[in-house]
Design a protein around this nucleic acid. Structure first.
Length: 213
DNA sequence: CCTGGGATTTTCT
DNA sequence: GAAAATCCCAGGA
């Protein structure tokens, strides 16, 4: 078990795009009762500023999006398609709307708990008592990892810098080199005009747990 | 391998 | 009333 060290508050002060790349290889830590769920972040997406047509904040500040206008280090969590949650980390200064969507993590610890969490929310028409959720399918998508890590609307606005329940950590011995990072277009934002071509998605090359190539 | 549709409800027009 | 920063499953090639 490597020594996980909580990310310094300074980490949250970098600009959104450095931040999104720097998050790769860092660890998402989640306390669930006596368990600690741990996932290595392998894919992120940046949503930046009031003009980014892919961003919820491009329509201004609303009840839903107000968290994107908050200071860096808070969680922005929203419901999508009526049934799933997505987890973002707010970036930039207060009143400048920006956030980073965590699109995929690699399960590291608490894997059997993640499997239970994924099955809890799954409504099966016919029960499948022997069904196993394959490991790669546990957390290779923004809504899947929220299910696996029990992240929902209750954690919206949570402060990741100070929280003991949901926070970010690193293994100081581990660094992701720039050559290991692939940038790509963001996913499922066809409505975003020319912003849909921005290469604001980042992932670790050759990692099995990335949601899409 | 790929494509298409259904689920489900909040949010904003 | 339509769309949504998704997922899952069925069906065809």
């Amino acid at each position: 078990m490597p020594a996980y060290r909580r990310l310094n508050p300074k980490f949250y002060q970098q600009n959104t795009f450095e931040f999104a790349r720097d998050l790769l290889g860092k660890y998402l830590m989640r306390k669930q009762g006596k368990y600690t769920l741990i996932g290595k972040i392998v894919e992120t997406e940046a949503y930046f500023g009031p003009n980014d047509l892919a961003s919820h904040a491009s329509r201004g500040k609303t009840a839903r999006t107000q968290m994107m206008f908050e200071h860096a280090g808070l969680a922005y969590i929203y419901l999508i398609y009526g049934m799933y949650y997505c987890f973002n980390i707010v970036t930039e200064a207060k009143d400048f709307p920006a956030a980073i969507l965590i699109r995929a993590v690699e399960p590291i610890s608490g894997i059997s708990q993640m499997q239970k969490n994924r099955h809890l929310n799954k409504k099966l028409i016919v029960p499948m008592p022997n069904a196993q959720c394959p490991i790669p399918n546990l957390t290779n998508g923004p809504a899947k990892l929220c299910q696996a890590f029990k992240i929902d609307k209750k954690l919206n606005g949570h402060n990741l810098i100070t929280s003991k329940l949901l926070y970010l950590a690193e293994n100081p011995k581990e660094k992701i080199k720039p050559s290991q990072i692939q940038s790509a277009k963001r996913v499922n934002i066809d409505y975003a005009g020319h912003y849909k071509h921005k290469l604001w998605r980042y992932y670790i090359k050759n990692n099995t747990f990335v949601s899409m190539k």
